[in-house]
């Protein structure tokens, strides 16, 4: 067909910087570069279908595309978590290297194919690290975590549980109330610029970094395979290239907007802290335990993990020599 309309429900509102703004940008660009022949109609979260249902909706053809993050599907495919954000995992540059020039992309597609989902997948945005969480007291040693109740999402939650943290995964809207009233003692959510919107800095003052659980997060565009098959080579390239451009746009936007928010938070009395080495080592060793369990439980998780690890081991040589050490503060 000459014209194409991608009806695209999304997982994050377009008003959310870096989480939602990239797909609005993609929609604008698609229309521009195709002279109006390829259009994307974006549906805010929940308007047509809520975020966790996007994969099902696209695969069954109820909509022809969707924008989300694979982490949402880890209940359906455990390996999906590895295509979204990996604790102690690669930063954006390394992540993209593995996806585009390692085996990442073919494994990514293979995951959906073997699980029987009728979708074509492509990364369509990537963002920089998240914060490690908001606490009401300083955390200096692993024992300080014991007995805390914390909102934590994804693979990182398993790590926290191993440290004696009671975890819950409250929806974004309940976090503020639960934290304010003390039903939970700590929470992680997203990047500073997003967390600020929840108003977390108004109740708890210790904001920890680095976000070891999410150094880079990839967002995906899913397109129904029948739709994809009917698209011309040009249309396919158009969408793929625009998504690749969106990776650049998203990481640039995310990198640009955090420090101002952090400065303002610090002015408002928030203590910005960096995990001490003991804590980081503890998180890492617990994460290794989690990985051991996951790789044993799911063969495909194991396959992706092994491939990613091999790639990263090779990259280490380059990484250790090529980059300047980071000054802290």
């Amino acid at each position: 067909a000459d014209k194409l309309l991608l009806k695209t429900p999304i997982a994050f509102g377009t008003h959310l910087p870096a989480l939602g703004t990239p797909i609005a940008w993609v929609a604008d660009q698609l229309k521009l570069v195709s002279d109006g022949k390829v259009k994307m109609k974006v549906y805010e979260p929940g308007k047509l279908v809520s975020p966790p249902e996007i994969l099902d909706a696209v695969s069954s053809g109820k909509v022809n595309s969707g924008y989300s993050t694979a982490g949402y599907w880890q209940g359906k495919m455990p390996a999906a978590a590895l295509f979204s954000a990996v604790p102690f995992g690669p930063e954006a540059g390394e992540y993209m290297a593995w996806l585009y020039y390692g085996n990442g992309m073919s494994l990514y597609q293979e995951m959906y194919d073997t699980a029987g989902y009728n979708v074509k997948v492509m990364p369509c945005a990537i963002i920089s690290p998240e914060t490690s969480g908001w606490f009401s007291k300083p955390i200096e040693k692993p024992e300080d975590l014991k007995g805390l109740n914390m909102r934590f999402f994804g693979l990182g939650a398993s790590v926290m549980e191993k440290l004696g943290v009671g975890t819950v995964q409250l929806p974004g809207g309940e976090i503020f109330g639960a934290l304010e009233k003390g039903a939970i003692d700590a929470t992680e959510f997203s990047q500073p610029a997003i967390d600020q919107r929840l108003g977390l800095h108004k109740i708890v003052k210790y904001n920890y970094f680095p976000g070891w659980h999410q150094q880079a997060t990839v967002f995906e565009l899913l397109i129904n395979k029948d739709t994809w098959g009917k698209m011309s080579k040009g249309q396919q390239a158009l969408v793929e290239t625009t998504c690749k451009a969106s990776m650049t746009n998203a990481i640039a936007e995310g990198e640009a907007m955090q420090f101002e928010v952090m400065e303002k938070a610090a002015e408002n009395g928030v203590e910005i802290r960096y995990w001490n080495q003991t804590m980081l080592d503890t998180f890492k060793s617990k994460w290794d335990e989690v990985v051991a369990e996951k790789t044993a439980a799911d063969p495909f998780f194991n396959k992706v993990w092994t491939d990613l690890s091999t790639f990263r081991k090779g990259y280490d040589l380059w990484e250790a020599n090529a980059f300047l050490p980071r000054a802290q503060k």
């Binding site: 008003h15 974004g172 503020f176 109330g177 919107r197």
Partner: peptide, 16 residues
């Protein structure tokens, strides 16, 4: 109010 805060990027605390 929770949903409104979410939609407009306002602080839930301020709205409450």
């Amino acid at each position: 109010l929770v949903i409104m805060a979410d939609q407009l990027g306002l602080s839930v605390g301020d709205l409450f």
